[in-house]
Amino acid sequence: MQITAYVVHIHRADASPALSSGALTAAVSHLGTVVGSEPLTAPQVYDDATHAPGVAYAGLRLAVEDADVDSLRAAAAAALDAAGVPGPDKWEGPERTGESVAVVPAALLQAPTKLLVMDVDSTLIQQEVIEMLAAHAGREEEVAAVTEAAMRGELDFAQSLHARVEVLAGLEASVVDSVREQVAFSPGARDLIRALRAGGHRIGVVSGGFIQILKPLADELGLDFAVANDLEIADGRLTGRVVGDVVDRAAKEGFLRRWADELGLPLEATIAAGDGANDLDMVRAAGLGVAYCAKPALAVEADARIDLPRLDVLGVYAGI
């Protein structure tokens, strides 16, 4: 007999959950033996820069022996559905309640060293940087529409990136510094990274955005790896092009695998988190794939969802 998975139920602390702890326990107990339960609570947190609130949450973590992870996930999803909590396949627009259940393999929680690889725009940070840059060219709405379509998986990411970057041609390079100063981390991001570093875990970020924005943020947070697209600059102005290969969904998965290999970690000890279709491949490949306040295209594929604006919930899933 051994613990094979942990079932984590998260909901807003200021609202009664639709799924009771008893109903969740009953839903999974026929698949394995529930050998322990632990209540989860966390106060409201605030982003350091903007003081944007991340709601307080509560929940429950169950330890389950001798159960199949996929079967537990199916049972948890069915329990949520029976309780009336809409899943991503039933969201209309941004509809979500903040209530979710994640089933985490014990192998991940028990790994002595874990690797977290995150997307950046709308995951580590609250904004989409390319839209902020496009605002300086008076093209924000146009670029935002293309970004949304790409994140829903309706457009080829590389082609959409080239089209969006073209509108930046001629902007003074100093706009990059202005945008970087406006970037705000997602609520709970700093707490999550501090906890990971304190536990000796490793952190990488891989972005379809731009290294000129990302590198200073990665340095500030003390991250181990950081990769993004490189905006071409000539004579002090943006050319409307990127240098080198585009960081697309295949590249993101490639970096997840490369960094795990460099660290000597199995994929079972990795976590990948993002919000859009460009993150699909790495989320599928990781030991635990997490959709953070995500578009349905990613949320329906991920192992776990965070539907609350708090990135540090990821640490609860990972046992940090």
Rank of each mutant, 00 (worst) to 15 (best):
H9N: 00
I10Y: 00
H11K: 01
A13Q: 06
S20G: 13
S20K: 03
S21V: 12
T25W: 09
A26D: 15
H30D: 07
G32V: 04
G32A: 07
V34S: 00
V35P: 04
E38R: 14
E38P: 04
P39H: 05
L40W: 08
L40H: 07
L40K: 10
D48Q: 14
D48M: 13
A52K: 14
P53K: 04
G54L: 00
A56W: 09
R61T: 08
L62D: 00
L62F: 04
A67N: 08
D68P: 12
S71H: 14
A75D: 10
A75W: 12
A75I: 11
A76W: 05
A77R: 15
A78D: 13
D81I: 04
A83V: 00
P86I: 01
G87W: 00
K90I: 10
G93C: 07
E95Y: 14
T97K: 10
E99L: 01
P105M: 06
L108F: 03
K114L: 03
L115N: 01
D119L: 01
D119I: 00
D119S: 00
V120R: 05
S122V: 07
S122N: 10
L124Y: 08
I125T: 09
Q127H: 14
M132A: 13
A134T: 03
E141C: 09
A149Y: 09
A149I: 11
A150C: 07
R152V: 10
G153V: 13
E154F: 08
L155D: 03
D156H: 05
D156P: 05
S160F: 06
A163G: 05
V167F: 07
L168N: 02
G170T: 02
L171I: 01
E172D: 14
E172T: 10
A173L: 10
S174K: 11
S174T: 13
R180I: 02
E181Y: 11
E181H: 13
S186G: 07
A189W: 06
R190N: 08
I193Q: 09
A195L: 12
A195H: 13
A198K: 14
G200A: 02
G209S: 12
I213D: 09
I213W: 10
L214M: 07
P216K: 04
L217R: 08
G222K: 03
L223H: 02
A226N: 10
D230K: 11
L231K: 03
I233N: 05
G244P: 01
A251T: 14
A251M: 11
K252E: 00
E253T: 12
E253N: 11
P266V: 01
E268I: 07
A273D: 10
L280G: 06
A285K: 10
A286G: 04
L288Y: 02
Y292G: 03
L298V: 06
A299M: 00
R310I: 02
L314Y: 12
Y317Q: 10
G319C: 06
I320F: 14
